[in-house]
Structures are given as structure tokens and as C-alpha cells.
Design a binder for these strands. Structure first.
Lengths: 142, 142
DNA sequence: GCCGATATCAAGAACTATTCCAATTATTAC
DNA sequence: GTAATAATTGGAATAGTTCTTGATATCGGC
């Protein structure tokens, strides 16, 4: 049994397997939290929230689950400076704006037609596998 | 006495104070290493190299020096994933290309006339203080 | 040049995020 | 149902960095 309609609000159905990864109960719940709270939580944030539903889960398992989900391309791991890693279910290519005042992290999409690699003087022969863009700043009061 | 011409090759003259920071012997030597070896070394790399000239320096002092230099805008701290921080004397706005095969980090300049913020759908009112661009990939054999 | 105030340094302990390990439990394939 | 495999747990271990404390060096005023 995966879930019933009698459970808490906004239930998200998660299949038993995603891109070859067996979705155990723990992985489902970890994934569900990332889906419902798009706050870019840390492993510890996820751990504290997932305990409501799986009181016996360990932090190591949360790390394992997050790693498995990242490895299978189901979520993304995001790092700011040397702070704790954060996790993000938004798979579209995007950057992150880190509000220095509130600490909130906003996803930032590229405007259509933008190809970032064209803007850069890359070393000759460079083949890009991944791009990461992080902005830090404030949001002016309007 | 800061240095003499009899010392090792490619001596770099460093003033006694840079942007309000007192340049102690330790800070000078740390800075000198960053200037002469543009490898984006880690704190530990710097520590090992600086011991040639200051055998009694401690790792904590290297961290302190690097922090002071970063805080005064004399060098930049660069982070990849959650690896050790690396340090970089290149103050011009630039990104980093991380070669996954060799581990070498290449500075990547923006092509002239590019304003990155224009390419992004930022949250309304966002004021950017800092942009960080990291690319990961390989360099194709030519 | 001397003296108190301040800044820096050194050494090691402490801290934190993360990973590793060994034992247990769950799941799958047959 | 059983053996093989994979996942989970809890605690120990690790690595990078920061903190603490006492010693040392530097600065500003006299």
C-alpha cells in the first residue's frame, strides 16, 4: 500500500520505480517532501520533516535517499559556498538567486533563446556537461 | 625588510598595506603564492607551499590570512560542489571551467558586451551583489 | 625609545556536514 | 519458501574549517 485518500492533504502519487530506481518507502517520502516544499531544504531539513511520517528513519538513510535520487536524475543537489547541500526537484535548467536578507533561494530561469555557453570565452575544445549559476543579492522593497 | 633581489626567482613586490589590510609577513607570503601559482590552490596547498618560506606558519594562520585577503577584496574564494575552498587572485568578473578529467580549473571570461543579468528571469526587485558561474566538463583532444 | 592597547599568530581542540561500516531488515528472483 | 541482493539503521569515522587560548608582534601617544 502506497497511500490512501484518508491521509494528509495534497497527497502526491509516486510510482514504485522512477528511472530505474526502486522507490522504497523512505525514498518516496523524501521525494514527496522535496516535491511539496520547494524551499531547497538541506538533508537535515528533510530529515526533520520526514520523521513525521517515518519516525524511525535515520539521517544516514536520508543522505542515502537523496544521493540515490540525485544519481538517477530525479532531483538536483545545489551547493552555495560551503554551506550544507540543498536539494531541488526542479530539473529544468535554471540558476539560483540567494537572498542575503531572508536566506530564501529563488529559482531563476534563463530567458528564452539564451545559450549561456555562447557568452563565455571557453578554453578551446571545452565540452560542457553542466552549468551552475548562483547569484547573491537582496530584493529591494517595492 | 620585505624582500631582496637575492631571493628566489620571480620575486613579487607587495606593499605593506592593501585596501586597509596590514600586510604582515604571513599575509604577504600567502598572497605571493596565489599570485605566482594561478592554480586555484586550496588552503592546504597554500599551507604546504608557504612552509618553504615560513617554516613555522600554522594552517590556522593560512586560513586567517586567506580570510582576511578575501574580506578585503584582494583575492576571491571559489567553491566547487562541497570540495575544499580554492583561492584565486583574479579579481575580474569571470567564471570557472572545471575539467573533470585533469581536475584543472580554468578561468573563463565573459565575452565583451555580455551582461549576464539580462539573460535571467530574476525575481522582481532583485539587486545582484555577486554572480558565480561554474562549468563542469572535459576538454576534447584536438 | 618606552608603554599600554590592539592585532596577529600558533597549536591544538572543537565543530559540522557528510560518509563509512557492520549488523539487521526488506525485497526480489527463482 | 529460500537464497541472493539491496536498503536501512545507528554509531563511529573523516575532512575541512573554525574556535580558543596564550604568546608575540605592531601601533599610537608620549
Amino acid at each position: 500500500m502506497v497511500s490512501t485518500t484518508s491521509e494528509v492533504s495534497a497527497e502526491i502519487e509516486i510510482p514504485e520505480e522512477i528511472s530505474g530506481l526502486r522507490m522504497t518507502r523512505q525514498r518516496q517520502e523524501v521525494y514527496r517532501i522535496l516535491q511539496s516544499e520547494r524551499n531547497h531544504p538541506t538533508a537535515n531539513d528533510v530529515f526533520m520533516r520526514v520523521k513525521d511520517r517515518l519516525p524511525n528513519i535515520s539521517l544516514a538513510t536520508v543522505y542515502n535517499c537523496l544521493e540515490a535520487l540525485v544519481q538517477h536524475g530525479i532531483i538536483r543537489q545545489v551547493n552555495f559556498e560551503r554551506e550544507s547541500s540543498r536539494y531541488c526537484p526542479n530539473l529544468s535548467e535554471h540558476g539560483h538567486f540567494h537572498d542575503e536578507v531572508t536566506g530564501i533561494i529563488h529559482d531563476v530561469d534563463f530567458k528564452s533563446g539564451v545559450n549561456l555557453a555562447d557568452m563565455l570565452s571557453l578554453p578551446p575544445g571545452a565540452v560542457i556537461d553542466d552549468i551552475e549559476i548562483t547569484l547573491r543579492g537582496k530584493i529591494a522593497i517595492s
